[in-house]
Design a protein around this nucleic acid. Structure first.
Length: 423
RNA sequence: GGAGAGGUGACAGAGUGGUCGAAUGUGCGUGAUUGGAAAUCACGUGUAGCCGCAAGGCUACCGGGGGUUCGAAUCCCCCCCUCUCCGCCA
C-alpha cells in the first residue's frame, strides 16, 4: 500500500509510476473515492463530537430530571443519524481501502523503462553457457530419471506436479537445502524454521489475499493457507510491531516447502521440475532502515549469486524493467540459471526491494532514535535459492558421458559422494 | 476434545453504565539536589486518522467482531488467544 498522503500531495508521481509499470489504474477515480471518504469521516466525527459533549452534560444532570429526559430525547435523534451515516462511512471506507490497494508501488529511478520481459536489462552473465555440455538433454529425458524423481507416482498419490524424490534424488535435495542454509547463515542471516500454514490476516498483509487467493492451497475448516513461499510467515513475524532501531537490519533465512496451485499456467514451462506445485526453497528476508535499503538490495543479490557461483552453474542477472517489475516491488533483480539440456534460462531467485510498501500493509515499524517516532521499515526478500530448478540445471549441465552426474565440489561434503547415478 | 479462569498502556495492575485515553506503581525522558552517584523531589512520557497555512482542534483505539443504550473498558452474543485441570496423542 502507498502512503495516502503521497497520493494526495503528489498524484503525478503515482500516475508516473502506474505508467512506468504499464498498469491500467483509474487514478482520478481513486482520488474521488479518497475525497468522498474524508468528507464522510469528517461528518461522522462531527456528530460523535456533539454526542460526546452532550454525554458530559448529562453526567452532571440528575437522572430523572426534566432536563435529563429532554436531553435523552434530543440525543436519540443524533444517535440515529450517526448510525445511518456510519453505515455510509463504512461502505465508503471499504471502497477507499480497495482503491488504495489497487495502487502499485513506485518503481525506483534506476528501473529501466520497458513493457515486456525482453526489455529487462541483462546486468551480468557468469560462466559460459555455450561451453556446457553441448550434447546435454532436458533433465526429464535423462535415462533413469524416473528412478530418482518420480512424477507418475506423485500424480497418482497426490496430483500432477507433486513428484517423489527417491534415493540420491532425495539426498541431493537435502544436500542443496543444507548447503544453502549453511552458506546463508555464514553470510549473516539467522536461520528460522517457520510455520508452513498461515492465517488469512498474514496472507493479506503480504498481498496473497484477496487477489491471489486462487493461487494458494487452503485448508478446511480452519481456513489456513499453505505457504506459497517462506516470505509470508517470515514477513509476518514482525507484523504490527515496532522494532528498536538498533536491531536493524534484521536478516533471516528460512527453508520451507512452498505450495502453489499455479492455476492458469500452461505450456512447455511445466515440463519436469521447471514448474511444480510443491517445491523446496530457502528464502532470504531483510527488515532494514529506509536509508540503507538499496545497499541492502545489492548485498542480498550478491548473497544469492554466491550460491550459484559456488555450485559452478552459469547464470545471468536481470534488472527488471517497469512493465515486468511486479505490483509491490520498487526494484527487482532476477537470477536465472542456464539449463544446458533445455537450452534456456530458468529463474531461481528474485531479489526485491519493497521499500515501505509491504511494511505499511503489515504495519512493521521501527522507532527512530532521533525523533522518538515510529517509522515504517523497508523490507527486502529473495530466494537463496529455489531447489527444483537448480537441481534441473545441475542434472543437465553436469551430466557425464557415462550417464552419471558430477556433483559440484562445494556440495560433495553434503551429498557424501562425487557422482550421482541414475542406475 | 471436556471443565474452569483470564485477556486493560513498555511492564505490573485498578477500574462493573456517564466528566475514563483510562487511577496507582515500575520503567523511560528532562530538570532540581550531589564533588560524582544512589536515594529523593518536580514535570513529562501511547498509537493512528481527519480538519486547519499555522497555532491548534476533533475522532478512534481497554484481544477481534456484532448487539443493547441517549451514553459501553464496564451489560449481552459469537470468535480468537493465554493459563490451570482432565482426556487423547507425535
Amino acid at each position: 500500500m502507498l502512503d495516502p498522503k503521497l497520493l494526495r500531495e503528489s498524484p503525478d508521481l503515482v500516475r508516473a509510476a502506474i505508467a512506468k509499470k504499464h498498469l491500467a489504474v483509474d487514478l482520478d477515480a481513486v482520488l474521488a473515492v479518497d475525497l468522498a471518504w474524508r468528507s464522510a469521516l469528517t461528518e461522522v466525527e462531527g456528530l460523535r463530537s456533539k454526542q460526546k459533549a452532550a454525554n458530559n452534560e448529562m453526567a452532571a444532570l440528575k437522572k430523572g430530571s426534566p432536563e435529563f429526559i429532554a436531553k435523552v430525547q434530543e440525543m436519540k435523534a443524533v444517535s440515529t443519524e450517526i448510525k445511518v451515516r456510519e453505515e455510509t462511512l463504512k461502505q465508503t471506507e471499504e471502497k477507499w481501502h480497495a482503491a488504495m490497494l489497487s495502487l502499485p508501488n513506485l518503481p525506483h529511478a534506476t528501473v529501466p523503462e520497458g513493457r515486456t520481459p525482453e526489455q529487462n536489462g541483462v546486468q551480468a552473465t557468469h560462466g559460459d553457457p555455450a561451453a556446457v555440455s553441448p550434447q546435454a538433454v532436458p533433465h526429464w529425458e535423462i535415462p533413469g530419471f524416473d528412478r530418482l524423481i518420480d512424477f507418475p507416482r506423485g500424480a497418482k498419490v497426490t496430483g500432477a506436479g507433486f513428484p517423489f524424490f527417491i534415493g540420491d534424488g532425495a539426498k541431493l535435495v537435502r544436500a542443496l537445502l543444507q548447503f544453502f542454509l549453511d552458506e546463508n547463515v555464514k553470510a549473516g542471516y539467522t536461520e528460522v524454521s517457520p510455520p508452513i500454514f498461515v492465517n488469512a490476516a498474514s496472507a493479506t498483509a503480504t498481498g496473497q489475499l484477496p487477489d491471489k487467493e486462487g493461487q494458494m492451497y487452503e485448508t478446511t475448516p480452519d481456513r489456513l493457507f499453505a505457504v506459497p513461499t517462506a516470505e509470508v510467515p517470515l514477513t509476518n513475524f514482525f507484523r504490527d510491531e515496532i522494532l528498536d532501531e538498533s536491531t536493524l537490519p534484521v536478516c533471516r533465512c528460512a527453508y520451507t516447502p512452498c505450495f502453489r496451485r499455479e492455476a492458469g499456467s500452461y505450456g512447455k514451462d511445466v515440463r519436469g521440475l521447471n514448474r511444480v506445485h510443491q517445491f523446496d526453497k530457502v528464502e532470504l528476508l531483510k527488515w532494514v532502515h529506509p536509508a540503507t535499503s538499496y545497499d541492502e538490495l545489492e548485498k542480498l543479490r550478491a548473497d544469492a549469486e554466491r550460491l550459484l557461483q559456488k555450485l559452478g552453474l552459469p547464470y545471468r542477472v536481470l534488472l527488471m524493467c517497469g512493465g515486468d517489475l511486479g505490483f509491490a516491488q520498487s526494484k527487482k533483480y532476477d537470477l536465472e540459471v542456464w539449463a544446458a539440456g533445455q537450452k534456456r534460462w530458468l529463474e531461481v531467485s528474485s531479489c526485491s526491494n519493497f521499500e515501505s510498501f509491504q511494511a505499511r500493509r503489515a504495519q512493521i515499524r521501527f522507532r527512530n532514535r532521533a525523533t522518538g517516532k515510529p517509522e515504517l521499515v523497508h523490507t527486502l526478500n529473495g530466494s537463496g535459492l529455489a531447489v527444483p530448478r537448480v537441481l534441473a540445471a545441475l542434472l543437465e549441465n553436469n551430466l557425464q558421458a557415462d550417464g552419471r552426474v558430477k556433483i559440484p565440489t562445494a556440495l560433495v561434503p553434503y551429498f557424501g559422494k562425487e557422482y550421482l547415478s541414475f542406475q
